[in-house]
């Protein structure tokens, strides 16, 4: 069977012990198969060359529209799906090169909290079993301490010990999300991917879950990758932020820098689209035309050029490279190609 080749060149990373997670030019392509022989006719480029790293004990927020590949990044990092190219270093070890036994040993260290607490809990298992199954499997605590340990984890996440014998359908959305958090936390992870943990919840419940996540982070020195489309939530919880568009990071930096001075036109549009709960502030909104292009057939050059109001000739043919405007603040845009400081100033004045 003819195989389409995927370009896969990158320089291997040098591990920095400060970082829990280092992602280098990560790619995940899903093949599109067609015809009688199920030949691969193309690829959906869900994640297309993403690089970032997360320091121990911090939270990185990953924002973007639906379909931009946020969730695929999270799943590929945890090796829930296999990568197409690039590398993922967890504590300096390449996750995708581990053997089955090594990966199994690593699993308790990296956990995930899923978006929908209604479908991510088995309806046929009691809560104690949902939380405790993996604990027993991985032998986290000795047998005689098992019950106390589960009770302890559950109470840390705001659940009562008598909830252990109940089933998921007896709980509300917020409590189910607490169960999901307890399940992830019970294994004593270092790194947790939070895949839109609050978007299915009400505002007041959202606040409870966000506070819980922050408390647990401080207590256990956890590292989070917080995936969300809600910028106000991401701003509240993150230390660094990456903005994704169509499988690529367009801007990456510290939270303060990005919110003080969003540089990429997409980030600016995204920020101005958030409704502000204050009727007196009627700001000039940048409304993006159209919708996100198909990742199976992304636009040439800069992927954002079809919707960008600053689009230049260059953008249509040449893909921009990441550029460091301030220390630690990267942007991928031709606007900042020459004289980065002056351009940044003028964008700020706008």
């Amino acid at each position: 069977m003819a195989k389409m080749t995927v370009e896969n060149t990158f320089e291997p990373l040098v591990h920095d012990p400060q970082n829990v997670l280092e992602v280098n030019k990560l790619k995940k392509y899903f093949p599109i198969k067609e015809g009688l022989l199920q030949r691969t006719v193309g690829y959906v480029r869900a994640v297309d060359g993403i690089s970032f790293n997360i320091k121990r004990g911090t939270t990185m927020g990953l924002v973007g529209e639906s379909g931009c590949g946020k969730t695929t990044v999270g799943r590929t990092i945890l090796r829930l799906t296999d990568k197409t190219g690039g590398e993922v270093l967890f504590d300096g070890r390449e996750v995708h090169k581990l053997t089955k036994a090594e990966l199994r040993a690593l699993r308790p260290k990296m956990q995930i909290i899923f978006q929908d607490p209604y479908s991510s809990l088995s309806p046929r298992l009691p809560i104690g079993e949902i939380v405790g199954e993996a604990v027993r499997e991985h032998g986290i605590v000795p047998k005689e301490e098992f019950n106390d340990y589960i009770d302890h984890i559950m109470s840390e996440c705001g659940l009562q010990p008598y909830h252990r014998d109940r089933y998921p359908h007896e709980f509300s959305g917020g409590q189910r999300q607490r169960i999901c958090i307890a399940r992830a936390l019970a294994l004593g992870p270092e790194f947790v991917v939070c895949d839109e943990p609050v978007s299915a919840l009400d505002v007041s419940i959202q606040a409870q879950i966000i506070n819980l996540l922050r408390d647990l982070q401080q207590e256990h020195n956890l590292t989070y990758l917080f995936i969300s489309h809600d910028l106000s939530v991401v701003e509240h919880i993150s230390d660094t932020i990456g903005v994704m568009y169509l499988g690529s990071l367009v801007e990456f930096g510290a939270k303060e820098d990005i919110f003080r001075q969003p540089l990429h036109p997409y980030t600016q549009a995204l920020f101005s689209a958030i409704p502000v709960p204050d009727p007196s502030s009627k700001m000039n909104r940048i409304v993006l035309e159209g919708s996100i292009p198909s990742p199976a057939n992304p636009p040439s050059g800069c992927k954002f050029h079809t919707r960008c109001k600053h689009c230049m000739e260059k953008c249509k043919t040449e893909a921009p490279e990441p550029r460091e405007i301030e220390p630690g603040h990267f942007v991928v845009c031709h606007l900042y190609d020459s004289e980065p400081e002056r351009k940044a100033e003028s964008a700020k004045a706008e």
């Binding site: 007041s204 419940i205 959202q206 409870q208 910028l231 709960p277």
Partner: peptide
């Protein structure tokens, strides 16, 4: 008042979000 305080707002820093107790 509780509903307004529990929503995080861009460019408004709070250490901890207010959450309405109970259900």
């Amino acid at each position: 008042i509780g509903l307004m305080a529990s929503k995080p707002v861009i460019n408004k820093r709070v250490e901890r979000l207010y959450s309405i107790p109970g259900k």
